[in-house]
Design a protein around this nucleic acid. Structure first.
Lengths: 334, 334
DNA sequence: CTGTTAGCGCTTTCAA
DNA sequence: TTGAAAGCGCTAACAG
């Protein structure tokens, strides 16, 4: 089964020239006589020659690939980000290697080191850890996406999490709500911490005291979020509104509300998703375009690969409040 | 910035031994004296040595990576499939390289060849083309996932699309529907063709004549699906039920129904998704677990990599009808 | 148990 | 314009 591969030297022999000249033809080097070029091209076609990319990369000391490292590629948000990065990479003929961190800070480092060992030319990372000083001397350009680097100056494409959450909660406040719950990821996740901060600020600005029992920065996945929401609904005085700090949580909060028939509770979520528009009521969300974020990150990385060595830049992608109904539900009576 | 990398020979020098012995230590070869081993390990730690994976792969003639090739990594179904494959790969320390085909058959071949050139050890593919005879002499094991190979005997992990669609449509028929629309992807996509076939069979078995105007195997994305659904609703005699052939289409059909307030039209979709349970009515679907499909495909591939050379096998992942409400809506009067 | 030699397939000197 | 030799960093073969 394992057929012997056609090597460059085989092509050279067939074309009656040297490996180096064949190499020149393959790499579009113009300094080759037309006749020789034609013979080599013929030989390539005849033998079905494909260059060995590993050998080429070894020789060149770098690989035409970039690594994308996110919490989980199965998460729709990161899947979209990655899809867009891949699209940009494709235009440049660059391969994308993905690695999911799952929630282990050590794995993040392992994965990044492994990619460096593969000599990827660049990295795009949405980290789960908060210390990236170990990347300080990395020769490989790194762009952070969605979550910012800790103890490291590096390029980043982010959204203003504090402002987004503040807007969302202020929106609820403006519709009369004062007992607003926060459901979000654990505070070890940076974006979660910032979004909770935005929630706090909005309440402070409205002169609404924080109620500890309504603040749940403890939901890793949708299952947690659902359970915590059910618990909120069982309180003697349930909240009249809920702010969810990310899509995964929204996907747990909403089933709980629907299950209990409590769609009279107002809701705003951080992150838009399919079907948000078709629920009853339709969902008011802070939209946080994964495609745009992915594209900006990829473009920044390729700028670095093209030699841009200006100081690290932080780009903020825009956020939009999309008003659809669930955030404008008035304060319920029960 | 580009620091010179530490090579194995540097480690060897620091440990006062040879490169080969250092290599043995790195690769856990037991035939090394304890003292030497310790010195090498010390040197590795001191110098921060990381093996160059490209060089290793070149020498070994294969790379510890697998390629995953799907229509789009941004599609939630394929994102989940890929996530699960990656999980299995992770357990074996194997890197995953992803590539999206977008809908171009030629790109499928290009991408597969490029991965072969990188010497990946195996491939998992969900194809968009229907002729894979060009893989006949590929030395790299390939497992097809979700969509079967054309003109090629190869491993495949599929679901029974015909049976699934037939079940879905028969379910609608059993609730009294006779004017059932089909909304699905173009017939060039195999799974779409099979699901349309299942739809046909269910109708034939019920003695319901096919109505051409209700059969729309023309929806590439959710935007198309939404528009075609709106058009269906505008017919003089709209259907009383709709069967959607895949999740992307469902995500277009449903907004159209909700937008027009036509949730009195029954609906069954092929493929479950987040929030299907929280819509009103909740969605009845044929569930087609992406995680399971991904896991089975990865396991089959690793079996091949471990030397299994039994004849190509086709595994059918189970399908389940999940009854939640939308499929049991009675025939509407208007 | 250890080291030397050779070579994976490619491209970069540097000379012809 | 072309080619021979050298070597990217690693490991398999084969001696010691």
């Amino acid at each position: 089964m394992t057929k012997k591969l056609v090597r460059l030297s085989d092509v050279a022999r067939a074309a009656e020239t040297s490996a180096k000249t064949a190499s020149r033809v393959i790499n579009q080097d113009p300094r080759v006589a037309a006749g020789t070029r034609a013979r080599v091209e013929q030989a390539v076609a005849d033998l079905g020659y494909r260059p060995d990319l590993l050998a080429r990369s070894l020789r060149l000391g770098r690989d035409e690939s970039i690594g994308v490292v996110v919490e989980s590629i199965a998460d729709p948000f990161f899947a979209s980000v990655t899809g867009e990065i891949e699209q940009v990479a494709l235009e440049r003929g660059v391969t994308v290697i993905v690695a999911s961190i799952r929630r282990f800070a050590e794995r993040e480092r392992t994965v990044l080191e492994q990619l460096a060992q593969r000599r990827v030319s660049g990295l795009i990372v949405s980290p789960v850890s908060d210390d990236h000083s170990y990347l300080r001397h990395s020769p490989t350009p790194v762009v952070f996406v969605d979550r910012k680097p800790g103890n490291l100056q590096a390029d980043a494409v982010l959204v203003d999490d504090v402002a987004g959450a503040r807007t969302a909660v202020a929106h609820l406040v403006s519709h009369g709500h004062r007992r607003i719950a926060y459901v979000g990821d654990t505070l070890s996740v940076q974006t979660a911490a910032s979004r909770l901060e935005g929630y706090r600020r909005a309440l402070a600005e409205a002169g609404v005291p924080l109620e500890d029992g309504l603040v749940l920065p403890v939901c890793v996945g949708k299952v947690d979020a659902r359970e915590h929401t059910l618990r909120l609904l069982d309180l003697p005085h349930p909240p009249t509104a809920i702010f969810s700090g990310n899509t995964r949580c929204s996907l747990g909060v909403l089933p709980a509300l629907h299950e209990r028939g409590r769609t009279d509770i107002a809701f705003v979520g951080f992150g838009d998703f399919d079907m948000a528009d078709s629920l009853t009521p339709a969902l008011t969300v802070i939209d946080h375009s994964p495609e745009l974020v992915g594209r900006l990150a990829a473009e920044q990385l390729f700028r670095r690969l093209d030699g841009d060595d200006s100081p690290p830049s932080t780009t903020l992608a825009p956020l939009h409040l999309i008003v659809r109904g669930s955030g404008e539900v008035p304060v319920c009576s029960r």
